[in-house]
Amino acid sequence: MGIQSIYIVNKSGGLIYHWDAPLAVLEVEKTFRYPLDIQLAIKRDVIHRWRVTFGERDGIKVGYTILAINGIPAEGLKLQDGREIGDVLEKQENYPINIKFGKIRPSLNERMFFASTFHSLFAIASQLSPEPKSSGIEVLETDTFKLYCYQTVTGIKFMAVADPRQSNVDALLRKIFEIYADYGLKNPFYALEQPIRCELFDIHLQQAVEGIDRM
């Protein structure tokens, strides 16, 4: 699917909604000999995890985290049987060792961080403009995705992370604004600026994203 994620950010930079495409899970399993020829580091987050920092090979990419060792799932820095992953990887007698790597989705904390960072970068981009009266960032292009941002006159930002080849994303964001007005704002239980928890909104957003190519 062309759309990877949708984010809605309120006018003070708080994340009020996010949606992710059901993604094909990226997982790679490989058996290693001693010594380990990729570099790992602990990534600090709500749940600390071991993450690849150097030495891409056989589909294992930088940024992947350890999901399991010898078939035993990892839970943070430990394995499910209570052993520390760091200790397991250090000891030579544990080799050859089978490690499963995968890309995990950003945590809610990271998403909120992203929302507020983008909120301020959006303002800085318009301040640094060489032309007068510029808006903030509308499209951000990278090699692997494009980030679209539509800011309404009321200051709410609708953002979409999409495949670089996907068209119609601007129209989709306007459509989501319409859905937000219809099923978020008109819901008497919805408080302005607060996270959107409305079933009808979820359903219609899902339909809009699925129907992007028919717009």
Partner: peptide, 16 residues
Amino acid sequence: LTDSSGTFNCYRTNKY
């Protein structure tokens, strides 16, 4: 979501 090696190439506003 796919790869973390890529960096951004450009961004666009309505003026530049």
